[in-house]
Design a protein around this nucleic acid. Structure first.
Lengths: 332, 332
DNA sequence: TTCCATTTTGCAACCGGTTGCAAAATGGAA
DNA sequence: TTCCATTTTGCAACCGGTTGCAAAATGGAA
């Protein structure tokens, strides 16, 4: 059993309150007392029990990190940045893997049982209602990569997916493609819906360009590959805006198998700019989502909610931009 | 503020002990009492505070998941499997990102402050001493993907890396390569050292085959690419055993850039068989490490240590096998 | 109905901390 | 040295639960 406050107090010959005070900053302790206590504490190898103290302070410094994107390589970057960012601020990530669960009830109950100080929902597929359920349960929440709404009910940090759809459309038009298509992620994902909407909106202004669309089953390599293999059976479009990078890479592999060339025969533009997109044997033209800014901002926001839980909800959107690599033909 | 035991007790008109008992299984409560309490609890939306109860039970159901491999895509699979496996058993993963920290002291202090019931160290690069420090601090620990020692001091679950090195060597020999090399991960990683040792051991029995070796700076795409680019400046070997898959993919990209063909001009064999290795545009011949078995076994082991913390340390090693794809030339 | 073994319940102390309040200690001014 | 404002300290109650023990309730047998 690790030593407790009481053990330290006895060894130092002082009250338990005194020991507690030397370990909570801002508390009133004389230098002499502090030294005595610290000596006893180091001798015993004492460090305060964060959970016991949370009982009275009402703060656990635990942050729930909830996600359902454990198959998209970009989420490794996301977890890396979140865990490091939280740790730097003395917060601890309690990871929740939703798998296919889309009902927030279980997560909410669990995270409340552990008295988390706040929750970050990191997902581009869950609907706004998911995060809202946390807010309704009185848990401070930030939805990272979530859907932007003009009057957000919870804090959202991410990108304007519809604008990304428009941006992709403009890029394809600019490069002279006249027969384009959207190869989306799962139709139920908010990010898919928004990217699709923006893409179609922009193309609606160019009636001379033909557009089609289809959806993959997931944001994954296999789903992208499978869908593209199906598309290749009939006459494919000249260029595709794929739901995200991993989907794009799946599509690229299908195209390579078919003997067609990218960008000679078919153009592909992705979204995310995950590390892998820049790998020389992938070299994907894509739209960069500023992951690290989004995460830094999300952390800042959840931290500020710990101070002020009733902070008025806001949407923080970060601009994206096209990263030109080798999967779209050059502008002529 | 969420409702507490006291609120439920008052509403149900019973003692706090009675409420506590209806929420701890195995406790003595009459059916009538249980109904009364459950009614009050649901009306108030009560669920017990796990941290408060941990104070007396001595169990938090928190498991520290410590890793430093946030840049290797295979670790997304690792985190997925660990979080799901732990959740299924009612345990909660508290994620610790070591970044470049290799001193366990901070992690130990932090995880003890949160009274974790146990710790899983998931890393193929940290030395055995890292996990041992947890054990010495009285924290049940399992080192997944760690170095196997003939007399382990802590539980280790993983593979025999030296045997994998031998296996890679045998595979290259079998395919008639006579000028081979080891392109390792960072030299400080235990997995690199062991794979290297095994590889050299096997080749020592074939003096007619020339062998060389070098090390990349990290288990990452860029490091693999950079090292292979350097190797290509002089006459490269006929075939390389790369430290792991992501390193292999980096090497493949360098080779592609140079105009050489795989497997025509150079052969590559990796290790891990991460999902990406099977992607058709990568199609990497590699040695499969049975990730999900390793993780299932690690979880089983840490769970059993919760019951019996003094369980005699054991090493659990899982066999690996060559997965033949397209980056080694066929046996003639 | 009475008796007694068994089950259920509540009391009160405890887990490891924090904190308001009053008492004790400190230290500078007169 | 005395006095008093300020700082430091300890007491005791509390945070939200659990649990040993004894008392109360239950229920079957006589």
């Amino acid at each position: 059993m690790p030593p407790t406050l009481k053990d330290v107090a006895e060894r130092a010959g002082v009250s338990r309150a005194a020991v507690s005070r030397t370990f909570t900053d801002g508390a009133s302790v004389s230098l002499k007392m502090r030294r005595k206590v610290e000596k006893a504490a180091t001798e015993l190898g004492y460090s305060p029990n964060a959970l016991a103290s949370s009982l009275t302070t009402g703060r656990t410094k635990l942050i729930g990190l909830v996600s359902n994107n454990f198959h998209n390589p970009i989420f490794l970057e996301v977890f890396d940045l979140f865990t490091r960012g939280l740790q730097e601020r003395g917060l601890r990530p309690l990871l929740v893997n939703l798998s296919d669960e889309t009902d927030p009830a279980n997560s909410i109950r669990m995270l409340r049982q552990y008295s988390v100080d706040g929750v970050v929902v990191a997902s581009s597929t869950l609907p706004p209602g998911f995060a809202k359920a946390f807010r309704d349960a009185g848990v401070p929440v930030v939805h990272s990569f979530g859907r932007y709404a003009s009057s957000p009910e919870v804090h959202v940090v991410g990108i304007d997916n519809a604008e990304c759809g428009r941006m992709a459309a403009r890029e394809l038009i600019r490069r002279g493609y006249r027969d384009v298509a959207f190869l989306g992620g799962p139709e139920s994902a908010t990010s898919t819906q928004d990217r699709f909407r923006g893409f179609m909106e922009e193309l609606a202004q160019h009636p001379e360009i033909s557009v089609r669309h289809s959806f993959a089953e997931a944001y994954s390599f296999n789903a992208g590959r499978k869908e593209m293999l199906a598309l290749l059976k009939h006459k494919p479009a000249e260029a595709y805006f794929c739901g995200d990078d991993v989907l794009s890479i799946g599509a690229l592999s299908a195209i390579a198998d078919s003997g067609l060339k990218v960008p000679g025969d078919i153009g592909i533009i992705g979204l995310n700019d995950m590390e892998m997109a820049g790998w020389e044997n992938i070299n994907l033209t894509t739209i960069r989502q500023p992951i690290s800014q989004i995460i830094a901002s999300s952390i800042e926001l959840i931290v500020s909610m710990l101070e002020n839980p009733d902070r008025y909800p806001e949407a923080r959107l970060f601009p994206c931009k096209v990263i030109e690599r080798g999967t779209l033909r050059p502008v002529d």
